[in-house]
Write a protein that binds this DNA or RNA. Sequence first.
DNA 1: GCCAACGTTGGC
DNA 2: GCCAACGTTGGC
Length: 152
Amino acid sequence: MNYWLMKSEPTTYSIDDLKHDKKTSWEGVRNYQARNFMRDQMKVGDLVLFYHSNAEPPGVVGIAKVCKLAHPDRAAWDPQSKYFDEKASPKNPIWMMVDIEFVEKFSHFVSLEELKKTKGLESMMVLQKGSRLSVQPVSQEHFEKVTKLGKN
DNA sequence: GCCAACGTTGGC
DNA sequence: GCCAACGTTGGC
């Protein structure tokens, strides 16, 4: 079983949206590295730290779970979609997404600042300078540490 | 709103 | 295949 961190801007899609929807397709990833993680490594049951980026303040707000393996992101060939990519088509989807379901919203919001201050999390990818990847792997140890903070 | 860091594009 | 120009991300 693998652990992940996925970023979303709360003005676009927040943990409360996921809680309301119960589950969602993670559409709109347009970065090859992030796509490859979803396509090649995510398994049903993998747990995800749900991260609010471009937020005030940014941080981890809860947990989601992968509930469907990667499948084509149809928004890529929908000209009406803001995620439209003219190179994508049903025959050549290019972009993939997994589905995730709501697990929990933390009782304690774990801000980026708190992550930075917590001993043992220094090597988390999200804390590295210039790290912009919106889908990233997290070690089990880091996942458990962050989850513990969130349940405080 | 600024801007550093990073990814992508396209001319050569 | 290099790399400058451009676009995007995301913290501040």
